[in-house]
């Protein structure tokens, strides 16, 4: 701005880790927003493309970075979409937390036999479970939701496998860590 500011500028010390997390979270937020405008046959049935980023980060970096990226994505996307602290946000957060929990354990599976497809599938199921728990416990506390569970889980299966394949593909065409190829 051309106006002289009376405020002293505040500098926040950032590390390269912070930049990396921010950059990766931005990818995830972009995918999340893209998905938010796609029509969905049933509320809650979504491809969950942002999880590809979470998985990619888990493979290329570590679990902590993946957790940061995933949770930042949930919070930032909800602020951008205007549903922070709304039921949609609660669904998103509970899903993300449970799928991170699943990934925390799944990351120790032998890589030789289990690729990102397994991790993605487990994360998708955990994500759905987290959402259904919120729906059952808070939003629609009657047994009527049980009817929709098979549809939700079938969607989690399809999208979980698809996202896993995409993650494998991304990992293959990006054999170098994102921060290293920039020097």
């Amino acid at each position: 701005m051309t106006q002289p500011s009376k405020n002293k500028s505040i500098e926040i010390q950032t590390t390269s880790d912070d930049h990396r997390i921010a950059k990766l979270a931005a990818f995830a937020i972009g995918l999340h927003l893209l998905e938010a405008v796609l029509p969905s046959p049933l509320p809650g049935v979504k491809p969950g493309l942002a999880n590809i980023i979470t998985l990619f980060v888990l493979y290329r970096f570590d679990f902590a970075t993946a957790a940061w990226v995933s949770l930042l994505r949930v919070f930032a996307s909800s602020l951008l979409l205007g549903n922070f602290l709304s039921p949609t946000f609660a669904l998103s957060l509970s899903g993300a937390l449970l799928s991170l929990a699943a990934l925390y354990f799944a990351q120790y599976l032998p890589r030789r036999y289990f690729s990102a497809v397994t991790l993605s599938l487990l994360a998708a199921f955990a994500h759905m479970t987290g959402q259904l728990l919120v729906v059952r416990g808070w939003l629609i506390p009657n047994a009527g939701v049980a009817y929709l569970i098979p549809i939700f889980m079938a969607a989690a299966l399809v999208f979980g496998v698809a996202n896993g394949l995409l993650t494998n593909y991304l990992l293959r065409i990006n054999p170098v860590r994102l921060d290293e190829d920039k020097g």
Binding site: L109, P110, R112, Y113, F114, S115, V117, T118, L121, L122, F125, A146, Y147, I149, P150, M153, A154, L157, G160, V161, G164, L165, N168, Y169, R172, I173
Partner: peptide, 27 residues
């Protein structure tokens, strides 16, 4: 570049399919 699906993946997908089929059947 997609690579071959690994053994564990195939098993996990099969289990997931069975699980979803079970959900449909029971609910």
């Amino acid at each position: 570049k997609w690579g071959k699906p690994s053994l564990g993946d195939v098993l996990v997908i099969l289990f997931a399919l069975l699980f979803v089929a079970y959900l449909f059947k029971s609910l």
